[in-house]
């Protein structure tokens, strides 16, 4: 088994109402050394963020109570989470305009379902390292 430690000391928030998807992604990120916060909808995600601001967020779009777009809008209003890189993980690939999401909500990217946990991990690692680079400069 390949053991990763790229996420050592880093925290990621995963938000999806599909338990199995959440579980698979959590499994992958923990193996990579990330600390993983999980939420089943936008409101739960905000509660987790109150506890700790993550280094990156991966969120579904369609969720009960508070959907992904509402969550992102709330995060961008909050000074603490304004610059946190966000990836959107969604089955509504062709219905969401990635460009609009990037421009309006500063979403770093859109990952379409069905997704590869390996690919998702790689994208998050890139985001975190880029964010770190920006902070240091």
């Amino acid at each position: 088994m390949a053991t990763h430690s790229s996420g050592e000391g880093k925290c990621i928030l995963l938000c999806d109402d599909e338990f199995h998807i959440l579980r698979a992604a959590e499994f992958k990120f923990r193996r990579a050394g990330f600390e993983v916060l999980c939420a089943a909808d936008g409101i739960e995600a905000l509660e987790r963020i109150e506890e700790r601001v993550p280094d990156a967020i991966v969120t579904d779009c369609q969720m009960p109570r508070m959907n992904g777009l509402e969550l992102i809008a709330r995060l961008r209003e909050d000074e603490r989470t304004r610059r946190v890189p966000i990836l959107m993980l969604t089955a509504k690939g062709f219905e969401l305009a990635a460009d609009e999401l990037c421009d309006r909500f500063h979403v770093a990217g859109v990952v379409a379902k069905p997704f590869s946990p390996r690919e998702l991990l790689r994208r998050v690692e890139d985001l975190v390292s880029t964010a770190l680079l920006n902070e240091s400069t």
Partner: peptide, 14 residues
Amino acid sequence: MKTPLSGIKAYVEL
């Protein structure tokens, strides 16, 4: 369809 497919794909990959 994509939602269960996501589960299948992710767990197969794990």
